[in-house]
Amino acid sequence: MRWYAGVARRTRVSPPHRSGVPAKLGGVLRYDGLMMGPVSLGVTALILYAAAEAFSIMHLRSNEPAQGSTATVFLLVGFLVHLVALQSGALAAKSVPYGDLSASMSFFAWMVAATYGILLLRHREGSTGPFLIPISILFLGASLLTHQEHVAVANPKLSGPLFAFHVTMAILGYAALSLSFVLAQLYLIQNRQLRRRNLGLLFSRLPALDVLSRLHRTSVAIGVTALTVASVLGLIWAKQHWGTYWDPKVLFTFLIIAIYLITLFPGKIGWGGKRVAFLSMVGFMLLMFSYTIVNLFITQEHVFR
């Protein structure tokens, strides 16, 4: 439990002026004399997400509407608390939270919750919650574990609204496509259960294949749009600062976008169902490749420092 002790220590001990949060924010969020810094807010959001997950698992088992609504409320409150946490972190760093890996993971987790919220609103289908909310929990948790006491000073070169939007959109794209990765797997699971006549509780509670397709489609649409906007903004920024459009990452991103576009319009090539789900997973593998290997070894411009 070392990490936990670490988190707790930081939350309790660090005096407001050292946690790097401006005093005016401290005034707003003072609670029983205890300063709610980004970390304690983050921990609160994490607990709320965990509660949302617990209730959505219960809902999956029991099919009780009240439990589904409770899960949604916990998720919403968690989402808002998380927003405040990000906000206070951002105020401290005076920029969108992408300055370091920890902050960007938290931002990613928030975007995942946001995309899941959009899916819930659009399709009124909460039974995928137990499989999607954990992504937020995982990344917010990882962010809190790797949290650095001192705030990384934003590189003056990497600032300005254009760059901030580029990063924000890219993170939203990654978040939405991560959800579609899980949804594609759920599609394949449901497809397999139908074929093997393995009709257990999971079968009866997971949505129908066409619903999973629609959920997948919406999240891919969000992801592709965000990724495209991010690429365009990135290209404009690169032209301004480097004088060239060229970055090997561009190539990969366009390939990824092309693959996901096929999953949005599979009928054009006579594909559907299972193949689309597989293709979506291939797209995600490439995305992960681009995020890790390409960033680390091929181009030096996308490394978090």
């Binding site: 099919n63 009780e64 139908l194 009866s204 949505p207 129908a208 294949l209 066409d210």
Partner: peptide
């Protein structure tokens, strides 16, 4: 809501409809 008493169909038409609804809701 608290037991699985009525969750799954036990008649042939009921099973058929449940299966169909897992492909087209």
């Amino acid at each position: 809501s608290e037991t699985g008493l009525n969750t799954r169909p036990t008649s042939m038409p009921g099973v058929a409809i449940e299966l169909a609804q897992k492909i087209y809701e």
